[in-house]
Design a protein around this nucleic acid. Structure first.
Lengths: 223, 223
DNA sequence: ATTTAGTGACAAGATGTGTTGTCACTTTAT
DNA sequence: ATAAAGTGACAACACATCTTGTCACTAAAT
């Protein structure tokens, strides 16, 4: 441990506020600075091209504080990734909620929110869809888990509105994974092509794939 | 250059056969040994976790010969990747050709060949679908280009058999990217789940997505 | 005013990797 | 038999990064 060598009898007076904020808050602030810096650095140059020093430079903090909150680059990346996933999840829920329970409308609204987020922030796009796969086997599993959550979300949406018999669909979770994969790949191509064609065309095109499945669930195309 | 300091007058006598094979053949053999080693190492541990020394150990050759044929890890990876793409392409063409021009049958045969290859060799799967995205921006472009080739292949297959009016489909190439993405993601989940459920169920499920699009092209589902 | 914790810049050792070079040994051709 | 090219194991250097530690300075509490 650090501190002085004396016991913890003075613990109630140990950590002082600084510049008006408590110690815990300052630590949290610095941690957030690193998370923000990670989004920028990882999003712009990729995980493996970024060093701790660069992250510190971007965060305007020094290595000492980096290791205060993170055990290493991977630890920071996990925080950045989780933040991005949460951001996406919030968006999706906010966008789709008003459309419930019309499956087609929900899908369209969710996809539009997704593409909108990617266009707003290419860094988030890169971290969500690519970098996460390359950090480590552990992060790869985390990404699979996150994808699974989205797939389950999709699955629940369809299950709650589906009227067909269950045996019609071999494995809805796998289909959901497929739809997510289709969306992700379309998005990657869209970004690689400099956000061309327009978002609404990309949205319509992606919806063709979703419609094909939604129809199989016993819904009218416009539902 | 290496060799002795004398001129190239003795070039005809310079390179001797060794152990029965010519110099060029030996170089090519060694190169192939490294490509094979790259498939194993990159496929098992991922590009960024592999060192030149490990590659040499796997290839049972030394660094000296590594730099004889490759400028560095990325150069080798490119060779490994290109080999994997070629292997996949051959499989797809061989599998789909007898089914032409029935679109549905071609898609099913191609997908079955694809899933079969991935099950045979998880290393190829990883290199084709994941590692290639993480090596460098240049390799990423190469992967995009390869995906585009497959998408164009798909596009041509549909175009040659489609009877609908062209304006029905906003962007067939984008749709093809989507279908490929769906297939890739389904495959990744399949592999992550230890090749479960069975290949035939995965195939049926993936075909649901393809059928949805094929139907929109004016074909009967069984075509 | 003095003391103590917090802060920021930087140094330095430890570590791992890429890359080139050396040397003894083997095989081939004369 | 001898010389020259091929081979394989390994050493050594350069280089970048991680990680911990030091030190002077600032802000806050007594």
């Amino acid at each position: 441990m650090s501190k002085t060598t004396s016991g913890k009898a003075t613990s109630s007076r140990r950590k002082r506020p600084y510049r008006g904020v408590s110690a815990n808050e300052r630590v949290a602030e610095r941690r957030q600075q690193f998370v923000d810096a990670g989004l920028v650095c990882f999003g712009d140059h990729g995980y493996h091209a970024v060093t701790v020093k660069q992250l510190c430079q971007q965060a305007k903090l020094t290595e000492r504080y980096f290791y205060e909150s993170f055990s290493g680059r991977e630890d920071l990346f996990a925080a950045v990734y989780d933040g991005a996933v949460e951001r996406l999840q919030d968006r999706l829920l906010t966008a789709t909620a008003p459309c419930a329970p019309k499956l087609g409308n929900m899908a369209r609204a969710g996809l539009d929110a997704f593409f909108g987020l990617l266009r707003e922030d290419a860094r988030v796009a890169r971290i969500l869809m690519m970098e996460v796969l390359t950090v480590s086997p552990g992060m790869e599993r985390r990404a699979q888990a996150a994808t699974l959550r989205f797939a389950t979300l999709l699955e629940q949406m369809t299950a709650s509105t589906s009227t067909g018999s269950p045996t019609d669909i071999p494995d809805m979770n796998l289909i959901a994974s497929g739809l997510i994969g289709a969306t992700v790949h379309i998005a990657m191509r869209w970004i690689a092509d400099g956000y061309h064609p327009t978002q609404s065309i990309v949205l319509d095109t992606t919806m063709l794939l979703f419609d094909g499945i939604i129809q199989k669930l016993g819904h009218a195309p416009n539902n």
